[in-house]
């Protein structure tokens, strides 16, 4: 674990130094990243210029959902966004070069081409979240504040687990990076909207199968004092840290299995 974090730190530091050598380019790409990801929220705002509520939710509430999921996802994307290149590395054999270095392969893959420009996504998520918190008419209690922080941390961890599990799948199917993207970027987009606009089956799927609902839906509904989807019990709003831990553990197992199969088949 320590070795992995150390290697991750060393490699990302190298990429950040190299990024900072071209400051103007860094600023431009970060702004680009900010604008491209922020368009999602612009679309939501445009929608609300025509309607007052979406699935029973007003704009600040949707912004709250959006901000939580975008910020959590932004962290995961910053830290592990390079993982979707694993399939290519497996195909062209460059993964072998990582296996002869004295550092965990996961850390090396994750840190490869670390893109600091992805901060743009986090910034827009935080801004939207800030707007939501400012415009929501809520009685903030300590447990609600704690819930927001818990949601961000656990949400980032759940998305990280999805990134790692997706990469592990690419050991078996090297062209699966698009499948992975549909779960990560696609899942993130899904969470920007309230659960009430989706079909029950889909909500069930992202609650019990791929537990994305724990990223923001359940914590946000607790904070907003809204009824839960699928008549879930109230205490589930506090489950995200446990769900995140379980997801991370499963993702690690999947990663190990993937790497083991690579090392026994070489393809």
């Amino acid at each position: 674990m320590y070795e992995g974090l150390r290697a991750y730190g060393l490699i990302t530091a190298m990429w950040i130094r190299s990024t900072m050598a071209y400051r103007a380019s860094f600023v431009m790409t970060t702004l680009g990243n900010f604008a491209a990801t922020g368009l999602d929220f612009v679309a939501i705002m445009l929608m609300f210029s025509r309607i007052d509520s979406l699935g029973g939710y007003r704009l600040p509430e949707v912004a709250f959902l959006y901000g939580l999921s975008a910020t959590a996802f932004g962290f995961a994307d910053l830290v592990l966004g390079s993982m979707d290149r694993l399939g290519r590395r497996v195909r062209d054999g460059t993964l072998d070069t990582l296996l002869v270095r004295p550092a965990p392969v996961l850390a090396q893959v994750a840190a490869d081409r670390f893109g600091l420009r992805r901060l743009g996504r986090i910034v827009q998520g935080v801004l939207v979240l800030g707007y939501a918190v400012a415009s929501l008419d809520l009685a903030w209690t300590p447990s609600k504040v704690l819930m927001v922080l818990l949601a961000l941390l656990s949400g980032a961890a759940i998305f990280c687990a999805v990134f790692v599990a997706g990469a592990a799948f690419q050991f078996v199917a090297q062209d699966a990076s698009e499948v992975q993207n549909s779960f990560t970027y696609g899942g993130q987009t899904l969470l920007q909207y309230p659960p009430t606009v989706f079909a029950k089956e889909l909500v069930r799927g992202v609650t019990f199968v791929l537990p994305l609902a724990f990223v923001n839906w359940l914590p946000a509904l607790y904070v907003l004092g809204r009824p839960y989807p699928l008549d879930l019990p109230a205490w589930l709003a506090f489950a995200p840290p446990l769900v995140a831990a379980a997801c991370c553990a499963l993702a690690m197992l999947a990663w190990r299995a993937g790497l083991r199969s690579y090392r026994s088949t070489g393809s």
Binding site: D96, L99, V100, R260, R263, S264, G266
Partner: peptide, 9 residues
Amino acid sequence: IKMLTGILT
């Protein structure tokens, strides 16, 4: 070579 370097089991 891959077995000698630990890449392959």
